Simulated scan of single mutants.
Amino acid sequence: MGKVTVIETNLSFTHPLDPRSSTNYFVVHHAASAGDISAADIHQEHQAFGWAGCGYHYVIRYHGDIERGRPRDTVGAHAQGVNACSVGVVLAGNFMAAEPTAAQMNSLENLLADLCDIYSLNPVNMIGHRDVADIVHDSTDATDCPGDRLYAKMDEIKQKVQALRS
């Protein structure tokens, strides 16, 4: 990856992770956390639910650091219906109540530009978690994620990602 550095967390998963055979979407989430939260914190929370571990592939902290959740080419556990064909990116914070930091936005845009280049996808394939319900045609999966304040920026993010692509 050329534009960002990912901090390797070397998380240990309780179950083997399946390889992802296709990548069609990048799904943006908010952690809905009251404060900054790390990949290790999310990993522990998800394991407490009985899951293998962190369901997201990337965690973006308040200060813009990008931490590895799941290995990039494995099936995620972040957006039911598209886990097998998507990369999950979560930002620490609750964007129903607050704005993402400028550092988070910069890291998100650069990470997504790198991912678009890696997977040869267009920024139109970047979606908010709330868009998954429309893709899988199941309104029972509707969610507010990634929060209204981040979701309102999705078109601007897509434009910036397109401009950043190599």
Rank of each mutant, 00 (worst) to 15 (best):
T23V: 13
L108Q: 08
M1Q: 03
E8A: 03
G81F: 11
P16C: 08
A39S: 10
N83R: 09
R70L: 14
V28E: 03
D36I: 15
D41K: 15
A77E: 15
Y58H: 11
N106Q: 15
A34M: 15
G147D: 04
Q162P: 03
L108W: 00
R149I: 12
T9S: 06
E99D: 15
Q80C: 05
A113W: 00
T5G: 03
R20G: 01
V87E: 01
C145S: 15
Y56L: 10
S166N: 15
K153D: 10
T140R: 14
N106W: 05
L111N: 05
T140Q: 11
S22R: 14
L150D: 03
E8T: 07
K3Y: 00
H30G: 12
S139W: 08
A77L: 15
K3C: 00
T143N: 04
A39N: 08
L121C: 02
N122S: 13
D73A: 11
L17R: 10
A40N: 10
H78I: 10
G64E: 00
V90M: 08
K160I: 00
A32D: 02
G128N: 12
S38C: 09
G53R: 12
S86P: 01
D41P: 12
G93H: 03
G50H: 05
D117S: 00
Y25H: 12
G2E: 03
C85N: 14
W51E: 15
G128V: 02
R130I: 00
R130W: 11
L111D: 05
P123L: 08
P19H: 13
S86I: 04
D114R: 04
Q162V: 03
A133P: 11
A92V: 04
A48W: 04
A34S: 11
A142G: 10
G69Q: 07
Q44R: 14
I60W: 08
Q162M: 04
Q159L: 13
N10Y: 09
N125E: 00
V124T: 08
M1D: 06
L112M: 08
K3V: 00
H137A: 10
S33V: 11
A163K: 05
G76S: 05
C145P: 01
P123W: 02
I42R: 08
A40Y: 03
L121T: 01
I60Q: 04
S86Q: 01
D155Y: 04
V132R: 00
M96G: 06
A48Y: 07
N122W: 10
G81Y: 11
D41V: 09
R70Y: 08
R20I: 06
